[in-house]
């Protein structure tokens, strides 16, 4: 492993990191954005190894790529459940009056979407 090869790998990983970060921010649906966020953590763990800090690499791999994604997904499910229970309680939803200020609404679970195929 020549130093130039290590530098090239480091630079390409960093570029991938930026791409993953931007992609996780601008995605409209939340579940694919969560998957991209998990891949961000994985690439970050590789970058930590190249920067010679194995403590941080182990922690980033265990927390970011493992537990954090799971917890985010559980939170999304809970949010979807709460949203549906509010809709069922209040009748038809749609106080669309103040929705100008909010960003696009996304649905939490993408299990039944046709256009994901």
């Amino acid at each position: 492993m020549t130093p130039e090869l290590t530098e090239a790998i480091k630079i390409s990983l960093l570029v991938l990191l930026i791409v993953a970060a931007v992609a996780a921010s601008v995605m409209k649906k939340l579940v694919p954005a969560l998957i991209v966020f998990t891949s961000f953590s994985l690439i970050m763990a590789l970058v930590w190894i190249l920067l010679e800090s194995p403590d941080l690499a182990i922690t980033e791999a265990a927390v970011g790529a493992g537990v954090s994604g799971v917890l985010f997904y559980m939170a999304l499910r809970r949010m979807e459940q709460m949203k549906r229970s509010f809709i069922e309680k209040d009748g038809a939803d749609g106080d669309g009056n103040d929705d100008d200020d909010k960003p696009d609404e996304t649905d939490g679970g993408g299990e039944n979407d046709e256009d994901q195929r």
């Binding site: 209040d90 038809a92 009056n97």
Partner: peptide
Amino acid sequence: KPTGAVKTMKIR
């Protein structure tokens, strides 16, 4: 046109 609000809140 309002976007389909059936019940609006009192404060609004």
